[in-house]
Computed example of a mutant assay.
Amino acid sequence: MTALNRPARLNRVLLALCGLLLLAGGGFVCATHYGRLTVLDRDAALVPGTATPPTWVLYVSAGAAIVIGLLALRWLAAQFARRPRTRTWRLERDPDQGRTELAASTATEPFVGEVATYEGVRAAHATLAGTRRAPVLAVVISADQSTDLGAVRARLDTEGLPRLRQALDLETLPVTVEFRFATASGDARVLH
């Protein structure tokens, strides 16, 4: 799992927490039912009465519902943050002489076009994120199942990435490459 795939990390944490809560609740109910825990009387009524609860209980319940709703909205919003945030780079050395701006998508288009022509590669997508001083490139390559990924990665390291670094005038460019295998039905399996 990479740092660029934040929703996966968040999903795993949320699922683990929900699973632990459900296991703890189920264990408590089973232990109480079979008499292992005597915290509650197993023959007692589930609800002590039909009277309206105190006002503070209603406020606490409403507050908890709001917090849970906001957490659910945050989780939904995280599902759409699949790519790192891109920026427009400013390339001027002397601002008095003028300003040159380069959109990250414009910089990666030739690179993606070249990678898509590699043998066995069906499609490629790249996201250039970060600033000019601290750039990060995330590459997603969809390939046939019979493709030699080592050859694709070697060609990427010897041809594609050096050209991109030269075009952007960068000495180093940290790269994350994700391979996706396309099946006959069009589904994809992911390898990092």
Rank of each mutant, 00 (worst) to 15 (best):
L102I: 08
L161C: 05
L149Q: 06
R155C: 12
F111W: 02
V115Q: 02
L17T: 14
R6A: 14
R165I: 09
L76D: 01
D144A: 15
S105H: 11
L149D: 04
Q166P: 00
L170R: 06
D41G: 10
N11R: 13
P84N: 03
A77D: 12
V115E: 00
F179Q: 04
D187V: 05
A116K: 05
F181N: 01
P95S: 10
G35M: 06
G150W: 10
R9H: 12
R99T: 14
E92M: 07
L70V: 13
L137T: 02
V136A: 12
D94H: 11
L191R: 14
R85M: 07
T183D: 15
R133G: 09
G26L: 14
A167M: 13
P174A: 09
L168P: 00
A64Y: 03
R180L: 12
V190L: 14
N11L: 11
R132G: 10
C18D: 06
L170T: 06
G160M: 01
E159V: 14
R90D: 10
G120Y: 07
L70E: 05
R133T: 12
G35E: 06
T127N: 02
S142F: 08
G35N: 04
L128V: 06
R163L: 14
A151P: 03
T86G: 03
G113K: 02
Q97D: 10
A72F: 12
R90A: 11
A138E: 01
I141M: 02
Y118T: 01
I68P: 01
A81N: 09
A107D: 07
T158R: 14
P7M: 11
Y118V: 03
P7L: 12
S146Y: 08
V136P: 00
V47G: 01
L70A: 15
E114A: 14
A129P: 01
T2I: 07
E109N: 01
